[in-house]
Design a protein around this nucleic acid. Sequence first.
RNA 1: GUGGAUGUAGUUCAGCUGGUAGAGCACCUGUUUGUGGCACAGGAUGUCGCGGGUUCGAGCCCCGUCAUCCACCCCA
Length: 403
Amino acid sequence: MINPLRGMKDISFDDSARFTHIVKISIEVAKRYGYNYIETPILEETTLFKRSVGESSDIVGKEMYQFVDKGGNDVCMRPEGTAGIVRAFVSAKLDRQAMKHKFYYYGPMFRYERPQKGRLREFHQFGCESFGESSVYEDFTIIGMVAQIFNELNIGYDLLVNSLGCPKCMPVYRINLISFLSVIKNELCEDCNRRIDTNPIRVLDCKNKKCQSLLVDSPKLINNLCAECDEDFKKLTELLGKTDIGYKIDTNLVRGLDYYNKTAFEFISNDIGSQSAIAGGGRYDKLVEYLDGKSTAGVGFALGIERIMELVKIPQSQREGYYMGIMTPDAIDSILLLAVQKRKSNKATVEYKSKGFKSHMKGADKANARYALLIGEDELKNGTVWIKDLDSGEEKTILVDDI
RNA sequence: GUGGAUGUAGUUCAGCUGGUAGAGCACCUGUUUGUGGCACAGGAUGUCGCGGGUUCGAGCCCCGUCAUCCACCCCA
């Protein structure tokens, strides 16, 4: 027997119903905000992710499905969606227009990690990317859109927001932080010492208690933002405060991807295990330039469909359509042609095998059909069908022509 | 990559100090060839993850391996 690869799952039955429900609601909401569908390749040049997601990130550093194809190209299964969308944006030369562009997408992403609850090697995201709008009002609007999706899916969440600064204030802060950390270096844990070089901001949310006690007086980015970043972040929280979207400022919130600046946010849930992020996103004003485009502001988010599947309850499926069966083999042609007609507008399940009445009734019930439609010897002879509404119990025999 | 737990029927799980493989749910067939959900009766189903070892004998003990789950890490 051949099983799916490690960390990869088949999605069917109840799961696929939840999956499509999440995608459907997300699309409906995104369309209301003016987003259009975009589909980009799953396989891209490895360079794309190195230059966008960043070589210092874990995603690029150790989690990529990377290989050389038969043409000798260094390629990679996409680990996230934004890089490909930005590449497509630049490829289509949309960066040379003054227009704003908004895209939504969904599909599989691949990361070579050790699987656990809520963490798969192949997983699915739904996401949106807004290009050409540098205003913080767009950040607010995007966060509101995610909140709306979750509200319509009827699931609870906590929202964390932070500002990561911009090329003016972030590098200055980073140097300050590194010098602060260097002083206490010997007392910090092994992981933190590694982080000082790779991603010093990560040291701030180390779970080690000793580290935390040493970090109480560390400089916080939120207090070292430049005037513009500070003003935008205040505006964002002010606006969020005026809505019913609850939020918490998390100064340690650092997204694992290098391209973010200014607004960063994460939606989390306490009900799905330790992998609690159900959506994340932020602003990436430099990313288009990194990928050889003309400087264009960008902001977006992605939500993890499998993680949200753990949270959504879908309503019990209603009885729908027809179950069609025969109790005399001669009636097979009649029932088939009837099904052809019915299927022009309704769901119809046909049992080809001639069976007893009771057996058909059980079959109709299992098929979750609203109506059982049967042809037996009498009906065949009279040119009629017997039909029963399985919800109301009402039944009648009518002429084939009157259906 | 590190640590821990678990692999027995479609599924959830039992299986004693080693002695011929079990239950619930689900499934199939019946309960006057014409009334589903309910009830009753009957039935099918296993390379006990895989490979080796110990033993007269291994689902159980030992070694290896693979997979799953949980946590770290990281993230959706």
